[in-house]
Amino acid sequence: MIELQNVRKTFLSRPALKDVSLTLETGKMYGLIGENGSGKSTTLKLIAGLNHPTAGTITVNGKEVDRRIATEVAYLSELDEYYPFYTVQDMIDFYASQFTDFNTKKAADIRSFMNLEPKSKIKHLSKGNRGRLKMVLTLAREVPVLLLDEPFSGLDPMVRDSIVKGMLSFIDLDNQLVLITTHEIKEVESVLDEIIALKEGDIIGHHNVDDLRFETGMSIIDWMTEQYN
């Protein structure tokens, strides 16, 4: 479970998050949506312990978040920051050496599901395959919280589809919660339980996806168009 209480984050004088309170439960997949600069990535980095809130508290399973929260949280960065001379297998071995919760058997299963060759050099991988590799490395960790920052960004529809299928196949919702930031709402709408919409550092909506449809007859995209215009 993740809890944010009155969290504020300012960069110099610019507020990135204003006064965010939020509770996220194990067993659900959450989508964090909003325009560029709305505070999505900031929220993820704060939960991952990569940044400190200016005010307020963040806890993951009751523990206050700092750098050491990495043992509870797997974070997929929107950046590609891997050694280009490593092979796919080198990268998997490296992760296994860094995280005691890394399940090597699961990593091999996901890698093969994603059709990645263990011997391929990272510098020779397509953007799509780098996206798949990031997913392998993140999903193979047996941690209660998975944070995925723009896992679909810049990838073509076939790759997105395989990543979504990989998530559905390998996420353990009995023990994990997943928080995804994305612009590609259409791709993930049907796999999300709830969405949290951010606008200029404030939460402007938090809904169960199917309840929203039931109550308003609107998909997330329809609803967002209404909220942001």
Binding site: L168, S169, V191, L192, D193
Partner: peptide, 14 residues
């Protein structure tokens, strides 16, 4: 539940 989720691209809770 998981097979159906993967087959139809929906959340297992759904």
């Amino acid at each position: 539940v998981r097979e159906m989720a993967i087959e139809s691209n929906v959340n297992p809770n759904t």
